[in-house]
Structures are given as C-alpha cells and as structure tokens.
Simulated scan of single mutants.
Amino acid sequence: MRASSVRTLATMVAAVDKDLGKASEKDGTQVAEELFALSDLFDSNIRLTRNLSDPARTAADKQALVTKIFQGNLSAPVLDGVMALAAGRWSTEADLGEAARILGKHVLLKTAQDNGKLDDVERDIFAMGQVIGKNRELRNFLTDSHRAPANERIETFNKLIGEKVEPLALRLVDAVIERALPGHLGADIRALLDSAAQLRSRAMATIYTAAPLSDTQQSRLVNLLSKRAGHDVVVNVVVDPSLIGGVKIRRGDVVVDGAVSTRAAEFRRKLAS
C-alpha cells in the first residue's frame, strides 16, 4: 500500500478499535468475520470499490452510499470502519479489499490481547509456521489453487492441526492461507507475528541455532537485539542441527546469518570459482 491508503487504514483501525473496546472472544471474532466477508465483497465488486475510492466524489457522498448499502447489515465497529474507509483516500481500488483483510486480522490479534491470550496465540502461530515451513508438500498444497479450492485446503490444514492450538491463532493462519501466494506463505505468517509484537510496541525475531540455547545465552541475545533495535525484541528459537554451529537471526526482512554451514558453503563456492 502507498501512503494515502496506509493513512486511511490507520483511521479505520482507530474507528474500529474505539467501538470494539475490550470485546469478548466471541464478539471480536464476529467483527473479524464481518471484515473478512467485506474484503471478499470489495474484491469481487469492482463497481462498489470504484465508487467508494473515487477521489472525485465527496466524503459525504461516499458515506451516504455506505449508509444506504450497509446500515443494519454490519455491526457498529465495522460500520464505523467502513465510514472511515469512505471518507479516506486510496492509492488504488484494490487496496480496499486488502485493508479490510488487514483490519480483520488486527481485530483477532487485539481480541487475543484483550482476553489475555496474545502470548498463547503468538506461540501457536509460530508453531504452525514451523509445521508449514518444514513440510514442502503441505506448503505447496496450501498455496496451490489448482489442487483444491481455498476452503478445502484450509479444512485439510485444520484437520491436521486439530484442537492443539488457540482458535484465534488458527483463524489468523487460516486467513493467511486463504490469500497466500506460492512462496509467500512463510513471510505472511511472520508478518502476523510482527503485527502481534507491534501491539505491545515490540519487535519479533527468530533465532536459528544448531543446539538449544541456555537461558543465559538466550537472555544475552535478547538484550543485544533489543539494544540495537532501540526497543524490546521478543525471540522465538528454532533448533536446526543442519546449521552445525553458530546462529542465524531473522528480524522482519533482515537476516543475519552466522551459521557454520553457511560459512562453509561460501568457502566451497570461493574454492570452486
């Protein structure tokens, strides 16, 4: 999204959060589902998105259209969010559907936080990301629209996961799978974790290591990363024996690779050149 769409999305988040308050898990999930359905509507109805994003129309005119179409069909938080959507400016029409999806995921994360479940939801999202990341066949299946419709792919994934995770975490990952493109699923799940971390004004990093870290080692790494970032950093640790030694750290799109296996591979390439 470009700047104008990002600013409008921020206004939508504020409008929805104000009405949502500290919602119960049931109410928060209902609001998120309305936003996901709204996203599907925007993606499929070009005429509607064109009218709501038309810079030549006044905010009042577009909000009147929202009232005519959605009054009585949406909960108060979602209706206020769509009012903010209509009043804002958009870089492209396609951003309306994306904004509604982003907002739906934000509502699920906020609901988890308000109900004291954000730690568990973050843990479960990370665990599901690991399952997907380590299983190429599963990853390919979940992102291949030619093999099965999205609802069937999600149903297969949910049966695999079962009741082992928080429902809010599973719904968030399902929402990612619904629109994930081949090669992007891992990054999209990491983006969920980043969004969860931002709710607490902290960053998320993943540390890959050949052997388990001691509490002291992990604490030192957390302190070092937090100091460099200028704010708190929360870490997930993945043990990967193939690294042989050293550590690899991923924070957002930044990767610091100090693994012995990587240095050995670089050395072999230099010898071969």
Rank of each mutant, 00 (worst) to 15 (best):
L185K: 07
E155N: 07
R250G: 04
A272I: 13
V235F: 06
L79V: 08
N73T: 04
L65V: 15
L193F: 03
I207T: 05
A205P: 08
D174A: 08
V173D: 03
K62H: 02
D144E: 12
G97N: 01
G186Y: 07
V6S: 11
V78I: 11
G133L: 00
R251H: 05
D61H: 15
K248L: 11
S261R: 10
F126R: 03
Q71F: 13
I102Y: 02
P182R: 14
T8W: 13
L192H: 04
D188K: 12
Q63F: 07
M83G: 09
R202N: 05
V66N: 13
W90T: 00
G104L: 04
R171K: 15
V176G: 06
G97V: 02
E93R: 15
D95H: 07
V6M: 09
K227I: 08
L48K: 12
D54A: 04
M83V: 08
N158S: 08
A229K: 15
G72W: 15
A197L: 06
I161C: 01
P77F: 11
L35Y: 02
A150D: 13
I69A: 03
A196C: 00
A59R: 10
V256F: 09
I154F: 05
A112Q: 06
R263C: 00
K62S: 00
K110T: 10
A148E: 14
A265P: 00
V16S: 13
A210W: 05
V239W: 02
G72I: 10
F126P: 00
A94H: 03
R179G: 10
K18E: 15
E166V: 09
S273D: 11
R57S: 15
Q198I: 01
N115I: 06
P149V: 15
V233M: 10
I207D: 10
A169F: 04
L193E: 09
F157C: 02
M204E: 05
A3K: 14
D194R: 12
P182S: 11
I177W: 13
L213M: 14
Q130P: 00
D54C: 04
D124I: 03
H146N: 14
A112N: 00
R263D: 06
S5L: 00
A203R: 15
V78G: 07
S91Q: 02
L172A: 07
A86N: 03
E93D: 11
S44W: 01
V66I: 14
R179P: 02
A197P: 02
E166T: 11
V237L: 11
E98T: 14
P55S: 00
L96Q: 01
A196S: 05
E266M: 12
R57C: 11
S145Q: 13
A56Y: 07
I69R: 12
T58P: 09
H231I: 06
D95I: 00
P241C: 04
A100E: 09
L224D: 11
V165G: 00
K164S: 09
V78T: 09
E98W: 09
D19C: 14
V131S: 03
D144W: 12
R89Y: 09
V6P: 00
V121T: 09
I69F: 05
I189H: 04
P241A: 11
K22G: 03
A210P: 10
S273H: 07
T49Y: 00
F36H: 02
A112R: 08
R136M: 10
D194F: 05
A87G: 14
P77N: 13
V173G: 06
S44G: 04
D95Y: 07
T206V: 07
L160F: 03
D114N: 13
V247G: 02
G104A: 14
A196E: 01
